[in-house]
Amino acid sequence: MRDLNFSPKAFLFDLNGTMIDDMEYHTLAWYGIMTEDLGADLDYASVKKEMYGKNHEVLERVFGKDKFSPEEIERLSVDKEKRYQAGYLPHLSLIAGLDNFLERSKAAKIPMAIGSAAIPFNIDFVVDGLNIRHYLEAIVSADDVQLSKPDPETFLNAAAALGVAPADCLVFEDAPKGVESALNAGMQCLVLTTTHTLKEFDGYPNILGYINDYNDTKLNLLF
């Protein structure tokens, strides 16, 4: 890691692509809705590029702000999440090594929280499906913030819920917008290489390092 002297007092986790490797299933769900149901002329790569933020923000970026009514957005969002959960359920699992990392962090009395743009419906699907709620002292979802990442609100709310200063938090992220959110919150970041290329993270000064999963021996430096 870049800064071996940093001793975090809390761990903040993004969820999708960071605790579970599921972003393909979110993209597939949106791709089906956008191309088959809504008739958009988009390829898979174009849809994947928009996979951040709240559902209504995804729809607005692709189709424009006034394309859908609030009722239509809600219906499309529910449909998307049902498709995502049905597709991902057979593969639901923590990223390799995370179970041990969570246990080790809890034993070290390092408080942990989730700070995610996911809705509670999906967070509960993961947290309860994998029985990890007892490790977490706080969860900040899309419903708990006004502004999505890269705004710092998500991670600042998580830090406040844990009672830990932002500068003492270490964020685990997989997406550039999430790293930018951590930077805007004044937090250091470790990047999971599950979703994006290393090149996409160029220019972010708050990245301490990159890991493929939680078996990486660099994590031993955090304890």
Rank of each mutant, 00 (worst) to 15 (best):
A167Q: 12
L192S: 09
L183W: 06
T27G: 11
D79Y: 09
P152I: 06
V47C: 06
P90L: 09
A107I: 00
Q188G: 08
A160E: 14
Q85S: 14
V58F: 03
L28G: 04
L198S: 07
A165E: 08
C189I: 08
V127Q: 10
A107S: 14
K199V: 03
L98E: 04
P70T: 09
L219D: 07
Y210F: 15
D174T: 04
A142L: 14
A138K: 10
L76I: 12
N206R: 11
F13Q: 14
T195K: 07
D174R: 14
V126N: 13
L136Q: 11
L208C: 00
I123E: 12
P166G: 11
L130T: 06
A167R: 14
L42H: 05
Q188S: 12
D144P: 11
R75M: 12
Y214L: 06
E57H: 03
E71V: 14
F201L: 14
N131H: 12
D43K: 10
F155T: 00
I20K: 04
V145R: 06
R2V: 03
L162N: 15
A138E: 05
T18N: 07
A159F: 12
A158N: 15
D144F: 04
I123S: 10
L162Y: 01
T217Y: 04
N212A: 11
E24L: 06
F125G: 08
P205Y: 00
N206D: 10
F68H: 12
Y88F: 13
E36I: 01
D43L: 03
R133N: 03
K218W: 03
G178E: 08
A10C: 12
M187W: 06
L42A: 03
M19Q: 10
L59M: 12
I132L: 00
Y44Q: 12
A86W: 01
P8F: 01
V179Y: 10
V145G: 04
K218V: 03
T154N: 09
E103I: 05
K48S: 08
A118K: 06
A29K: 11
L42T: 02
L102Y: 04
Y31H: 10
Y25Q: 02
R61M: 01
E24C: 07
L59S: 05
P90Y: 07
V145T: 15
L156I: 00
L94K: 12
Y44K: 14
F68V: 05
N55Y: 02
L59H: 02
D99R: 15
V78A: 06
C169S: 11
L183N: 07
E137H: 14
K109N: 13
L4E: 01
K49I: 13
D14E: 05
E50P: 05
V126H: 02
V126K: 02
N122K: 08
V164A: 12
V58S: 01
D99Q: 09
F121V: 06
G203K: 08
P70Y: 11
S77F: 02
A159K: 07
S141K: 10
G209H: 09
G17E: 14
E72G: 07
K65G: 01
T35Y: 09
